[in-house]
Simulated scan of single mutants.
Amino acid sequence: MTHLARRLTAYGSALLLAFGTLTVMSAPSTAAAPAEELCGPGSAINFDRSAFPESPRIDNKWFPLKPGMQYTTLGTVTSADGVHEHKVVHTVTGLTKVIDGVTTRVMWDRDYADGELVESELAFFAQTRGGTVWLFGEYPEEYENGEFVGAPSTFISGLAKAQAGIAMPARPKTDTPSYVQAYAPKVDFLDCGTVFQKNQEVCVPTGCYDDVLVIDEYNPLEPPEAGHQQKFYSAGTGLIKVTAVGGADQEFMDLVKVRKLNAEQFAAVNEQALELDERGYEVSRSVYAKTPRAELDD
């Protein structure tokens, strides 16, 4: 039996995932807004390769990705077949990868349902000189009953009509247009973000925060009853909380651990992430195999 949850992936995007079975939400052709404004008026993707530096440095205060940092979020998923524990371990690696002409930082996420690994994913981020963080793609390997079953939801900006999107604005403000977080029509992936609230007070196991930014996320390809997801970010830390707003399948997650890996742990993480990257060339020959291989920072 499977249970559906919104997937907490790489700090940013939300996608329906059956732990063990991916459920793709196909949409009628009338469901999507015109391609240039997928998330509503003012949401046109304005991607400019020249806006990114040659070496990735992601220090946006709401979305800092410093190599060697690891964040663990823990919570529950409630669906038709009950309540299940959900844990995600997010690790900022020392790897970079060129995607769509931009050098990105590689993040490695491991997603567990009731203690069992259901997804191991590489996600790719870069920050403009102005401070906006972009998501350039994901390579998510899926597992069922401990066995690898494929990576059908892989998307890479610039390939198969996929487009990079904004993971976090440089200076998020309320009452501004929604923005596209990523768009990959071949795998029915479209996430939209809206700056919902600022200066909120939130307590989670790692502490209490009084400077919290709330981003409301949704997929316009899904029916309204699918609900939204809200993510809470603290300056200097990043993601600290995830909640569900409506919808039959609901996920609630809190940041429970933050640590800086020691040299030995960091080296092991980089080695495993490189192995995952290498495997992608066999698993996703039509998409991932068309990218340059990831490289370890000098």
Rank of each mutant, 00 (worst) to 15 (best):
residue 191 D to T: 12
residue 224 P to L: 02
residue 233 Y to I: 07
residue 26 S to Y: 11
residue 223 P to K: 15
residue 81 D to G: 03
residue 209 Y to N: 01
residue 122 L to N: 15
residue 44 A to G: 15
residue 41 P to E: 04
residue 295 E to I: 02
residue 65 L to D: 04
residue 83 V to F: 14
residue 163 Q to V: 01
residue 140 P to T: 02
residue 61 K to C: 12
residue 136 F to C: 10
residue 182 A to P: 03
residue 23 T to L: 05
residue 232 F to G: 00
residue 116 E to M: 00
residue 17 L to Y: 14
residue 158 G to N: 09
residue 241 K to H: 01
residue 197 Q to C: 11
residue 281 Y to D: 14
residue 230 Q to T: 06
residue 209 Y to W: 09
residue 287 V to M: 06
residue 193 G to N: 10
residue 161 K to T: 06
residue 162 A to G: 05
residue 222 E to A: 11
residue 285 R to F: 09
residue 52 F to G: 06
residue 203 C to A: 13
residue 232 F to K: 04
residue 279 R to A: 12
residue 243 T to P: 10
residue 93 T to Q: 03
residue 251 E to K: 01
residue 100 D to Y: 12
residue 197 Q to P: 06
residue 3 H to R: 10
residue 124 F to E: 07
residue 162 A to F: 09
residue 90 H to W: 13
residue 241 K to Y: 04
residue 157 S to Q: 01
residue 268 A to P: 00
residue 224 P to I: 02
residue 12 G to R: 02
residue 147 E to N: 05
residue 151 A to C: 08
residue 181 Q to Y: 05
residue 20 G to A: 05
residue 111 D to Y: 07
residue 1 M to D: 06
residue 40 G to F: 13
residue 177 P to A: 02
residue 144 E to I: 09
residue 120 S to Y: 02
residue 288 Y to E: 03
residue 207 G to T: 09
residue 49 R to H: 12
residue 56 P to C: 01
residue 8 L to D: 00
residue 231 K to H: 02
residue 274 L to S: 13
residue 51 A to Y: 14
residue 49 R to A: 11
residue 98 V to H: 04
residue 159 L to G: 06
residue 153 S to E: 15
residue 106 V to Y: 04
residue 12 G to S: 09
residue 18 A to N: 10
residue 179 Y to C: 00
residue 31 A to N: 09
residue 12 G to P: 00
residue 277 D to N: 15
residue 247 G to R: 09
residue 155 F to S: 07
residue 46 N to S: 11
residue 228 H to R: 13
residue 81 D to K: 03
residue 45 I to V: 14
residue 226 A to R: 15
residue 137 G to V: 12
residue 229 Q to K: 06
residue 228 H to V: 03
residue 246 G to D: 11
residue 205 P to C: 10
residue 130 G to H: 15
residue 292 P to Y: 05
residue 141 E to P: 09
residue 128 T to I: 03
residue 169 P to Y: 12
residue 212 V to H: 08
residue 188 D to M: 01
residue 92 V to T: 12
residue 9 T to H: 03
residue 116 E to Y: 00
residue 203 C to H: 06
residue 149 V to I: 14
residue 247 G to T: 12
residue 246 G to Y: 07
residue 278 E to H: 13
residue 89 V to A: 04
residue 246 G to T: 07
residue 141 E to Y: 09
residue 214 V to D: 10
residue 74 L to Q: 15
residue 297 D to I: 14
residue 261 L to Y: 07
residue 21 T to K: 08
residue 212 V to Y: 06
residue 239 L to D: 01
residue 185 P to N: 13
residue 85 E to R: 08
residue 101 G to C: 07
residue 106 V to R: 00
residue 129 R to W: 02
residue 16 L to K: 13
residue 4 L to G: 03
residue 60 N to T: 02
residue 85 E to D: 13
residue 275 E to P: 11
residue 40 G to A: 07
residue 260 K to T: 04
